[in-house]
Every structure is written in C-alpha cells, then in structure tokens.
C-alpha cells in the first residue's frame, strides 16, 4: 500500500532542546518506523510535547538533528493534532477543506476528501455547523478528521484525549485505531497509561528530558528495563 518514496523511518541523533537557557530535552536518539502507533509516555514535564513539536518541525532543535528517509519533502506528509483543538471560525466543512486548499488541492477534490474525512470521524451530518459550536469531543474529532483529510504518512497527536470525557475518549481512540489500521503512522503522547496500553505498538519512555526506553509495548509494560519506568508503571510519582 505505501508509496515507495516513504519518508519513514524517522530518526533523530542526539536531539536536544533548551528554552531560555533552561534545558528541556537532552540527547534523544530514536527511530520511528512504519507500523503500529508509537506512544510517548512519561510524567508531566518530561518533555513529551516538546519532543513531538521538534519531530513535527514546529520547534527547532538546539542540538542534534532530525532525519527523514527518502527524497520526498517530509513537510506535507505529516500532520498534527493538539491537546486543545484549534478550530477556525468557520463551518465544520470549511475547517476541513482549509488545509487541503493550502496543500494545493483543487476545489472539487478538497470537498470530496473533506466529506470522506468527516464521514470517518462521524461528523458528516454536522458539516455546515459552525465549528466552534461543537462539543469538546466533537471538536477533537473534527481536528482528527481535518488532519486525516490531509492523508498524512505520519500523524502526531499531543494528548488528544486529555480534556475529554470517557465516551469522547473512546470515540477518539476508535478513530486513531482506524487510521493506524489504514496505514497512517501514529506518534502520540499521553499521560494515561491505560490508553497507552490500549493503543501502543511500541512505547517510548521519556523522563526528565531523556529518552530512557524505546521498546515494543508488550515488553515495556511487562518488563520495563529501567527503575524509573518500573516506578512510573507502578504508579509511583517519578520526578
């Protein structure tokens, strides 16, 4: 299914980031390959969101480098959904077609893709509603659908369910699973261990700005390799 000019795997070498003289990430070297979701977990302030933004290119690293495979421009092959969805002051449909227009798609193609994406996230019936009048859960599903309409090869999700109730969380997780099954590489952060267990193909454990573990999810949750990860999984406050 995947085009031969894939941008994956994504690798980083000794990635570091500091803000205002304060170091936030140190020496992060990782490889993200196509496949089931990679879930970045770790305590608050570990640097999960910053890592996601570095990978997506929203922040510039202060040390190290990020490398995408292939010869294609990686920029248009990625998308990101934020913890709090940023919706334009437009209709649900217009929100979905907006990035497609930026990507240079013809008007008819935009509409068709957007409607398909809204179908996927269960918002097709609300296409003409102003986006900001949706419920929080619907807003996050719209953000997911809008990102999915771009047909990204890799989709970054920053705590996508942090402000959602259980029902909305379940709906969002179902969409994530569906996108992953269709071949989109999911890279997401979460502070919710149960969610990580449900979704993760591999786990990346971030602690105080360092990547302490990257391993298949089953192995990580059963036998964490570091005492910090073990303590975190056991529910102890790791700091």
């Amino acid at each position: 299914m995947r085009a031969p000019d894939t941008i994956l795997p994504l690798t980083t070498e000794a990635l570091g980031f500091a803000h205002g003289g304060q170091p936030i990430l140190h020496d992060v070297s990782l490889t993200i390959e196509a496949g089931p979701p990679s879930v970045i977990i770790g305590p608050n302030g570990a640097g999960k969101s910053v890592l996601l933004r570095l990978l997506h290119g929203l922040l510039a690293p202060s040390a190290g480098r990020i490398h995408w495979s292939g010869i294609a421009d990686p920029r248009p092959r990625q998308a990101m959904v934020f913890q709090r969805p940023v919706l334009l002051r437009r209709s649900v449909l217009a929100n979905t077609t907006y990035p497609l227009g930026l990507a240079g798609l013809a008007r008819g193609e935009r509409d068709a893709r957007a409607r398909a994406a809204l179908e996927l996230v269960g918002l097709a019936a609300l296409a003409d509603r102003p986006a900001r009048t949706l419920s929080v859960g619907e807003q996050q599903r719209l953000a997911l659908g809008r990102a999915a309409a771009l047909r990204p090869e890799i989709l970054f999700l920053d705590e996508p369910c942090a402000s959602l109730d259980p029902a909305a969380t379940q709906a969002v997780e179902a969409i994530i699973a569906q996108l992953s099954a269709a071949g989109t590489k999911i890279v997401m952060t979460t502070h919710d261990l149960a969610q990580a267990r449900r979704l993760a193909g591999e786990a990346l454990f971030l602690h105080r700005g360092r990547l302490l573990e990257q391993s298949p999810a089953a192995q990580f949750f059963a036998h964490p390799a570091t005492p910090e990860a073990a303590a975190f999984l056991a529910g102890a406050l790791v700091w």
Binding site: H56, L88, L102
Partner: peptide, 26 residues
C-alpha cells in the same frame, strides 16, 4: 491561538493574513 496550527498546516505569517482577516470578519 492559530499560529501553531497554521504552521502545522504549512501556512506561514503571509498566508495567515487572509485567514485571520476572514476569521476575524465579525
């Protein structure tokens, strides 16, 4: 509010101007 999301879409400040003007129309 929009800056990070628009940059994620690949829209820089120049492209953001018409977007902001339209979204701020009211």
């Amino acid at each position: 509010e929009y800056a990070e999301q628009l940059r994620s879409f690949g829209a820089g400040p120049w492209r953001a101007i018409p977007t902001l003007l339209w979204d701020g129309r009211f």
